[in-house]
Design a protein around this nucleic acid. Structure first.
Length: 261
DNA sequence: TTGCATGTTCCGGA
DNA sequence: GTCCGGAACATGCA
């Protein structure tokens, strides 16, 4: 689930409920999800401190808490829940922040994400890896420049976090479908006009998805038919193709997404 | 039981 | 150096 729009939803939850709250206790049912500290270390560093306003870069949620920063990644199955203080832990609650206003639960079913504690602002890149500009904020000129000397396929490029941060498998499929571009098209084969259409599609898809906190499974969206066994293109009705592209299962329309156009 | 899954990282090879 | 595919990570589900 968590790509850029989902993480944006988590950021809003954090901003609404957690920003300004004071941390009273941290519990860690899954301590292995604290990737660079221990439950004790986290408690020592953060106990009694107040959270600031969180920000998001790509799929990373960055939550300041006085002189520290929590860098939160959700992997494939992570999410965030705000509950009352007396609610019982759920099966997948991994790190539970009890504050003076309520309880924030970081959950992860498959435990691929994690939480990192960063002291001061330094060392964040070591944790997140090199990140390109956030896909929801990147300007056309910068995207064009970054794609200019890229070899290889467009889907791999869209999902490369060091090139552009925030897009994953499903978003890249949705964006390519909207722009009518085959996922295996070489970046260098895209005309400027086509690349600009891709940029516009990306902005559209992200704007609507961020509002929903996920890719909307609505009419006119590829996401609507993604889970279907024999899925048809929501635009032209052709049978959709499903195959590995750039190491992941891509979904596209062989009729309206052409390789060279 | 087997294959698959929206995340990243690491390795080998082109 | 760049890029890609495959494996690995951990776990649940169809």
């Amino acid at each position: 689930m968590p790509e850029l729009p989902d993480v944006e939803g988590f950021r809003r939850t954090w901003a609404r409920h957690v920003a300004g709250a004071r941390l009273e206790r941290v519990r860690t049912p899954s301590p292995e999800l604290l990737r660079n500290t221990s439950p004790q270390g986290l408690g020592r560093a953060l106990h009694g401190r107040a959270f600031g306003a969180p920000r998001r870069h790509g799929k990373w949620l960055l939550a300041p808490i006085e002189r520290h920063l929590l860098a939160v990644h959700f992997g494939m199955t992570g999410d965030l829940h705000w509950t009352s203080r007396d609610e019982a832990d759920g099966a997948y609650d991994a790190v539970v922040f009890e504050t003076d206003r309520g309880t924030l639960r970081y959950r992860s079913q498959r435990k691929l994400g994690g939480i990192w504690l960063v002291r001061g602002g330094a060392g964040l890149t070591r944790v997140t890896g090199e990140l390109g500009p956030d896909a929801a904020r990147v300007e056309w000129d910068e995207l064009r420049a970054r794609f200019a000397d890229r070899r290889g396929g467009i889907k791999a490029a869209l999902m490369d976090q060091s090139l552009l941060a925030g897009l994953g498998n499903e978003l890249s499929d949705e964006i390519l479908w909207r722009a009518r571009i085959h996922p295996a098209t070489a970046v260098g084969d895209l005309s400027e006009r086509k690349l600009h259409a891709l940029f516009e599609s990306m902005r559209e898809v992200l704007r609507a998805s961020m509002r929903h906190g996920r890719i909307p499974a609505e009419a006119g969206w590829l996401e609507r038919v993604r889970e279907k066994r024999e899925a048809a293109c929501p635009r032209c009705g052709a049978s959709l193709a499903r195959d590995r592209v750039a190491g992941r299962t891509a979904l596209w329309c062989p009729r309206c997404q052409t390789e060279w156009d």
